[in-house]
Design a binder for these strands. Structure first.
Length: 200
DNA sequence: AGCCAGGCTACCG
DNA sequence: CGGTAGCATGGC
């Protein structure tokens, strides 16, 4: 199928009508939509980054357990987290050996930013941060207009696994207004729809 | 009881 | 280079 700009726009409207506004990113272990929101402070921003790493190939429900454990230990704080042993706390999110390392690498980098917004290339240079994670961090934590492509996006729109990530991303970015709020909502709606679909 | 989840790296040919 | 095994837990 040729995915035109008009198609991308109309599918957005359809998904919005079907699932209502998602208001990502989910923060504070809240399952009802009222409390989903963009980050309002540094702590929320950091939590989004952690969630983006923890959710790699992992169901969000499991990520929430890990985040809740970190929250109880007051570790949603880069300065505390950097010296903490978090392996057992993040165990529910799976791949805990790798993810502890990924989180530590990222946190060290995050502290070095001193509040500055990272570039995509900087994020991609970190061990454990690939394109989807980098773009999720930029879009949801830093409000940068970058469209996030994930497995659901490929499945829903019929892109094969071989189709280049950035090619797909640019297709969406060109078709939509350059507005992080639109990219935010569209990706969230794709996930909402994707969760209702069976894998082929 | 499997299969799957909001990927990424390392290694293989 | 492109392709793929390995990583790990919990929900459905």
């Amino acid at each position: 199928m040729s995915l035109t700009k008009a198609t991308i726009l109309s599918i957005y409207s359809e998904l919005l009508k079907k699932h209502k506004k998602q208001n990502w990113w989910p923060i504070n272990n809240v399952y009802n939509n009222k409390n989903y929101k963009v980050p309002e402070n540094d702590k929320e921003k950091f939590e989004i980054c952690l969630g983006a790493i923890l959710t790699q190939n992992t169901a969000w429900k499991n990520v929430e357990k890990a985040l809740e454990n970190l929250r109880k230990e007051k570790l949603i704080d880069p300065k505390k987290l950097i010296n903490a042993d978090i392996k057992e706390l993040i165990r529910p999110a799976g791949y805990f050996n790798q993810k502890e390392r990924k989180i530590k690498v990222f946190t060290k980098f995050y502290l070095g930013l001193k509040g500055r917004t990272p570039t995509r290339d900087e994020l991609l240079s970190l061990w454990g941060i690939g394109k989807e994670t980098a773009d999720s961090i930029l879009l949801y934590a830093y409000k940068q207009p970058i469209f996030v492509v994930d497995a659901y996006t490929r499945r829903l729109f019929g892109f094969s696994k071989e189709m280049d990530y950035d090619e797909i991303r640019e297709k969406f970015e060109k078709a939509l207004p350059r507005d992080y709020r639109i990219y935010n909502e569209y990706h969230a709606l794709i996930v909402a729809e994707g969760k209702t679909l069976k894998k082929v």
